[in-house]
Amino acid sequence: NRLGIIYEIQGMKAVVLTSEGEFLIIRRRKDMKVGQQVSFENEDIYNV
């Protein structure tokens, strides 16, 4: 599992900021809110 803070939500995608200072786009889940810490898997990351 990886951890990140939700920075922005766009439709079915969420932008998270990881503890390494990396911004990633992941698959959104219904319970996500901006500012929330979430765990996610590598499979949830969109390749940009």
Rank of each mutant, 00 (worst) to 15 (best):
I9C: 06
V38N: 01
I9L: 07
R27Q: 07
K30V: 15
E22H: 12
A14K: 00
I26L: 07
V48R: 05
I26Y: 00
V16F: 01
I6G: 00
V48N: 13
G35C: 12
V15S: 10
Q36H: 12
I6H: 00
I5F: 11
M32V: 06
S19E: 10
L24D: 01
Q37I: 11
S39G: 03
L17S: 06
Y46T: 10
G21D: 05
Y46L: 15
A14E: 00
M12H: 15
V48C: 15
I9V: 11
S39K: 12
L17G: 04
N1Q: 13
Q37F: 09
M32F: 10
E22F: 09
T18S: 07
D31S: 14
I26P: 00
N1P: 13
L3G: 09
F23Y: 09
T18A: 05
S39L: 08
N47M: 07
N42V: 10
K30I: 15
L3W: 12
R27H: 06
K13M: 08
L3K: 09
E41D: 09
K33D: 05
Q37Y: 07
G4V: 02
M12A: 13
Y7G: 02
S19T: 13
V48E: 13
A14I: 07
V48A: 08
E43S: 04
N42G: 08
Q10V: 11
V38I: 06
N1I: 15
I6K: 00
D44Q: 02
G11Q: 10
V48K: 14
I45K: 02
Y7T: 10
S19A: 10
Y46R: 08
G11L: 07
V38F: 04
E8S: 08
G35V: 00
S19Q: 15
F23E: 07
I45C: 08
V34I: 10
L24W: 05
R27G: 10
K30E: 15
V48G: 11
M32E: 03
S39I: 06
G4T: 01
D44P: 11
D31C: 14
Q36F: 09
D31W: 06
N42P: 07
R2M: 09
G11M: 04
N1A: 09
Q10L: 06
V15A: 09
R2D: 03
E20D: 11
F40L: 08
Y7A: 10
E41L: 12
R27I: 15
V34P: 06
F23A: 04
L17I: 12
Q37H: 06
Q36Y: 10
G4W: 02
E41H: 06
I5P: 00
N47C: 15
I9E: 02
T18I: 04
V16A: 03
R29A: 10
L17K: 08
I9M: 12
L24K: 04
R29P: 10
S19L: 09
I5H: 06
L3I: 14
G21R: 02
E43A: 05
M32N: 03
E43H: 03
T18L: 04
I45M: 03
I5R: 06
K33Q: 07
E20A: 09
Y7N: 08
I26K: 00
E43F: 02
R28N: 15
V34A: 06
V34Q: 07
R29N: 13
V38G: 01
Y7M: 12
Y46A: 12
F23H: 11
L3V: 11
I9D: 01
D44A: 01
I9R: 00
E22G: 06
G4K: 00
E41P: 08
L3Q: 06
M12L: 05
F23P: 02
R29F: 05
V48M: 09
V38W: 09
R2P: 04
S19M: 12
K33H: 08
I9Q: 02
G4R: 01
K13W: 13
V16Y: 00
Q10P: 01
G35W: 03
V48T: 13
Y46G: 13
D44F: 05
R28W: 15
G4L: 02
Q36V: 11
Q36C: 13
N1S: 12
Q36D: 05
R28D: 04
L17N: 04
S39R: 09
V34Y: 04
G11W: 10
M32W: 14
I26S: 00
V15Q: 06
T18F: 03
I45V: 06
K30T: 15
N47P: 08
I6Q: 00
N47F: 08
I45A: 07
Q10N: 08
I6F: 00
E22A: 09
Q10R: 11
K13N: 08
I26N: 00
G35K: 03
G35L: 04
F40H: 01
V34C: 14
N1W: 07
R28K: 15
R29G: 11
E22P: 02
R2N: 09
K13I: 11
I45N: 03
V15L: 10
V16K: 00
D44V: 01
Q10F: 14
F40N: 01
Q10G: 07
V16S: 00
I45T: 01
E20P: 03
S19H: 09
R2S: 07
S39N: 12
L17Q: 11
Q37D: 05
T18Y: 02
N42Y: 11
I25F: 08
F40K: 01
E22V: 10
